[in-house]
Write a protein that binds this DNA or RNA. Sequence first.
RNA 1: GUCCCAGUAGCUCAGUGGAUAGAGCGGCUGCCUUCUAAGCAGAUGGUCGCGGGUUCGAAUCCCGCCUGGGGCACCA
Length: 553
Amino acid sequence: MHLRDLVAARVVEALTRAQADQSLPTVPVPAGLVERPQNTDHGDFASSAPLKLARTMRMSPMAIAEKLAEFIDTDGEISAVDVAAPGFINFTLAPEWLQEQVDQVLSAGNAFGSTEAGKGQKIQVEYVSVNPTGPLHIGHARGAVLGSVLSSVLAAAGYEVSREYYLNDAGNQIDLFHQSLFATYLQALGKDAEVPDNGYRGQYMVDLGKEMAEAHGSKFLDMLSDEGVVALGKIGVEHMIEGIKNDLATLNVEFDVWFSETSLYTDKYYDTTMKMLADGGHLTQREGATWFVSTELGEDKDNVLIKSTGVPTYFASDAAYHYNKFTVRGFDKVTNIWGADHMGHIGRVKAVVGALGIDRDKLNIIIGQMVALKRGGETVKVSKRTGDIITLKELLEEVGPDACRYFFLARSADAQMDFDMDLAIKESQDNPVYYLQYAHARLAGILRNAKENDKDFAQGDVHLLSTPEELTLIRHLLMLPEIVDSIVDTMEPHHLPHYTLELATAFHSFYDRCRVITDDEALTSARLKLVEASRIGFSRCLSLMGMNAPEKM
RNA sequence: GUCCCAGUAGCUCAGUGGAUAGAGCGGCUGCCUUCUAAGCAGAUGGUCGCGGGUUCGAAUCCCGCCUGGGGCACCA
């Protein structure tokens, strides 16, 4: 249980006692009793419960506040409870208790910040899942960063997390890729060939065709034409997947499972799913195609599962995929991170999940909004088909993975953003990322200095940490578990970089005002404890965000 | 046409029912013989897109409108 819950529990407990005592009328208790006030003059926590209860209790908010405050004990973590107009109760944390938490952080070590909000629950986060028909571009990076940070935070909250990439390794687009590659391969061999009309025609396809020709010669020409296209195509797809994996690794994004779409068919999950939908009366035949009757489940329109050609749609695969996630693999929760161009799929996928007898609220879909790329003040149109793209690889070479991650992470997923390359490159010189990393480097520097001077601070007395800067730093440090829980609660990881920035401000201010290593041995030891605790905090935040925590800068 | 997202400081964005709306960057003023100045301290900067409504209280919730973006295929 994190600190805010602890204080909220005290309010509920006090309210219960006041009601049992008949000091306050017995009425239902509203939710959200305690918050962090934005103005620090109002204490560490505030409750607006009296304002919320005034109507149902038929009393003035101030009278409720006064009465309720009497029932709240000032001991342990709370040193003061104050009533403020028009009906707030403000709580102040006890300096002694704050000081002692430094020892608690030290004993928690790298587990500091972890909570138990998701204990015993299996959650899957599926992200990126880009077709292996081209390199990753800047828009994909946003989903990649979101997914990887969300996964890390979920794990910190005690969830058993599985990070998954859904690989579309069959179907129309793959066929088209095969044909496109065969064409550029032929061209590389000096033959006449045309990339199909809707095919993939970027420079990367030309390069790949050349590479294939150099590595394999005319080998694929000698096969029957279809066999050659497929054989070459498979090698090409493998090549694209390797490239995607490399780019993601550079961005520090990893997966536990690479799930093959084809396996849904070879392992019969597709057949099982279609049968379940048929048995449930969710299917109908129309114009030679098989439709999912989603209109009966409140959707705008029905959706085709099997085309009149007999070929299943992407949506059919998706139905089988979600059946597999929930029913076969038994995830308690599933989060899909999709691009804005998939917005229209949310309703029907949720509908089909419900039709398969699964609680549709277990499926959470996060939409990463569009990233418009700007360069030299111009918006660059991104299209994989025409090959007019800024690849993730190029982006990482220019901006660097840490700055790139921060840039995407600090914005909420549902806000569209302009990624101004010029600005991002410029900012990489003087940028919030360095502000955070510099804090870690400074902390590491102090600890290095202490070691060189043989300072052993194990016996340091944390009660000597009494300046406003020290206490402010401790206060901010202790917010981490709350941040972790609130990210899990809202599924919005963008709170983490903002919190880390505030923590860095508290630290830099402390660094400026409180010299750590001095002739005062006792104070030095106490401050070294705070420095080590802070280093643990920064290291955890940076690692959750997938960023480097440098020892020196 | 319809559904979804966004509109907050010069710029990029937080804040989504509470007290005087915040941060970073840019611009302005100070601060390096001391563990890293990639830093600190301070000042300046806002009709929270517009208009109604609900509420003790609205940037936050409801309705309408304006602007920008996206979704509405037997594509993925």
